[in-house]
Nucleic acid binder design. Structure first.
Length: 553
RNA sequence: UGGGCUGUCGCCAAGCGGUAAGGCACAAGACUUUGACUCUUGCACACGAUGGUUCGAAUCCAUCCAGCCCAGCCA
């Protein structure tokens, strides 16, 4: 078999294993989320690493719910996780597994482990265990129960299984080395008693295996070859290998764990714990709030599958933690959207303009063409008449230096239509500009070939008679790029009050049958998506990304 | 101060002994029926620091410095 060239250090490891024929089976990877929260961009990063490695080497990819703690898991999350994975383009197909389905197998293997004298039941309390464990700089001391006989351990473990003890009363521990400099190897607990209804196995079990013990076995059962996880598990690798080694009779070609650095994005929070707080405390509208980096949030904000894939491939894979600038993500979206989003005209903050010399009651259609990546997406006819709407920010009574748009006496082009010149400014009693009176030059109609003079600005506009109301939600960065820590967090200092701004008076072209998640580009205002969640009489848009900052010229 | 991991441009990131890819961001300019898009150009005599090995080092060795992770019966 021709081996594809490795793209990163993880793939290089796999490539080497293939060359050395380490496995008699195809490459097999997995993504093992605990169903206790929603997927976010960081999850996608981990999924992508495992998924694309399998794909690249013609292997298999599993989704396995890592559900060994019934206290935290819920069906709500297993559904959401699968849905998000599919949406993001990582459909596991039939390869969907549940760690809890292996409870019987793991139990049987554990009996063997005890018979081999490699695990023992410990009566120490959690507090005592902590004391016996020692510290980072001092070795631990053996539990007084460490040398219990095999038969006694077997009996006790069986009783644990049968519910003879209460949670915390006893625990099964791996017998490794209390003096190990690696704390994970100081006789870690591998089975604990839990009193809870498991969302899947119900009340069948009273004991549940710990992650460190269950994970290698789960991987091995599924035939995983490369178990790629994040860097904080690096110290757990010796334990992962110890488990598989101790069960060598069952798994002759054990999987190997390899680690990659976690990926963070500036201004985004990806800790499930904090995400949960933001949602619970109502600082955001829910798990799908567009300001959140959750898959559902990104989706509602308008990110596309292609943009996310592009981003993930672009940033690469690091061995250590990295913090990618969010502008990279936004760039990837812009890149994808410029050839897909329909270009339309929308006036976010309308200022009425009356074209005084334009015939009353006359209505004509003008061709508007937008010169984007895909011109066809911006080609259409728009109604034009005596009364129109322009952007308020496109007018300045006393123009600052470099301002070329509307100001008294200045002439500009209306995109697709005519040149107009600002003749008079109408104000209300408090001095606010409420209308502009302009004149137009019939000779300057767009496309007429009239090039007798030039103007320095082109404005987007809308017929005051033919447009529809819309509501626009502008979502900014939610959180400061700071390290947040502590149990009780005062989110008010992290949530920017301007992170969500609602514009009510927006007017847009009469869009024909827009669908949820449809993407549009509002000229000079950036990309917008029809909010999939709102169903008002008004059309509702979410801002996706801005165009580059417009500088005064 | 025990153990593990990482240090290449503001941010990602190639590089694996032969003389610093690329992307984002940023800056300047060209083009333009929007100041967007596109295009052009610039942006690390330098690879955490210091020594050493070598004809030659970001790449090897040594020491030091900085950052991250680990003391759940969470994952």
């Amino acid at each position: 078999m021709e081996i594809p060239s490795a793209g990163n250090f993880l793939e290089r490891i796999i490539e080497e294993d293939i060359e050395n024929q380490v496995y008699q089976r195809p490459i097999h990877t997995r993504f093992p989320p605990e169903p206790n929260g929603y997927l976010h961009i960081g999850s996608l990063y981990a999924i992508n690493i495992n998924h694309s490695a399998a794909k690249k080497f013609g292997g298999e990819f599993n989704l396995r719910y890592d559900d060994t703690n019934p206290l935290k898991e819920d069906m709500e999350y297993v559904n959401a996780i699968l849905e998000d994975m599919k949406w993001a383009g990582y459909d596991p197909g039939k390869n969907i597994f549940y760690g809890s389905d292996y409870f019987d197998t793991i139990y049987d293997l554990t009996i063997k482990l005890i018979e081999r004298g490699l695990a023992y039941v410990c009566d120490l309390t959690a507090d005592q265990m902590r004391e016996y464990r020692g510290t980072l700089t001092t070795p631990g001391t053996d539990s007084p129960y460490r040398d219990r006989g095999i038969q006694e351990n077997l009996n006790l473990f069986t009783q644990m299984r049968d519910g003879k003890f209460i949670p915390g009363e006893r625990v099964l521990r791996a017998k490794i080395d209390m003096a190990s400099p690696n704390i994970n190897m100081r006789d870690p607990a591998i089975y604990r008693i839990l009193e809870a209804e498991h969302y899947r196995s119900g009340a069948k079990w009273k004991i549940y295996p710990m992650y460190d013990y269950a994970h290698p076995i789960q991987d091995a059962i599924e035939g995983i070859t490369h178990s790629m996880c994040s860097i904080e598990f690096k110290d757990h690798r010796p334990l992962y290998e110890w488990v598989l080694n101790s069960l060598d009779f069952a798994f002759p070609e054990p999987p190997k764990q390899r680690e990659f650095g976690r990926m963070n994005i500036t201004g985004a929070i990806t800790s499930k714990r904090y995400l949960r707080q933001l949602v619970a405390l109502n600082y955001v509208d829910g798990w799908d709030d567009p300001r959140l980096p959750t898959v559902k949030g990104l989706r509602r904000r308008g990110f596309t599958q292609a943009s996310i894939h592009n981003f993930l491939n672009e940033i690469g894979i690091a061995r250590d933690m990295s913090t990618v600038d969010i502008s990279m993500l936004e760039h990837c979206l812009r890149e994808d959207l410029k050839s897909k989003a329909r270009a339309v005209m929308a006036v976010l903050d309308p200022l009425p303009v009356t074209i005084t010399n334009y015939p009353e009651g006359v209505e004509e259609y003008v061709d508007v063409e937008y010169n984007g990546e895909n011109p066809d997406l911006g080609k259409r006819q728009l109604p034009f008449c005596k009364k129109i709407l322009v952007e308020r920010e496109d007018f300045m009574e006393t123009p600052e230096k470099g301002f070329h748009r509307l100001y008294p006496g200045n002439e500009v082009r209306l995109k697709g239509a005519y040149f107009i010149k600002c003749a008079e400014v109408v104000k209300d009693e408090s001095g606010n500009v409420i209308e502009l009176l302009c004149t137009y030059d019939p000779e300057t109609k767009s496309g007429s070939g009239n090039v007798t003079r030039k103007v320095k600005a082109t404005l987007h506009w809308l017929s005051a008679e033919h447009n529809i109301p819309a509501r626009v939600n502008l979502y900014g960065r939610l959180l400061a790029d700071e390290n947040i820590s502590g149990e009780e967090i005062d989110w008010t200092q992290y949530v920017d009050p301007n992170s969500k701004i609602v514009l009510e008076n927006v007017r847009v072209e009469n869009l024909i049958n827009p669908q949820p998640e449809d993407k549009f580009q509002f000229l000079r205002h950036g990309y917008f998506v029809v909010d999939m969640k709102r169903t008002d009489e008004k059309l509702t848009f979410n801002r996706i990304v801005s165009l580059k900052d417009t500088k005064k010229r």
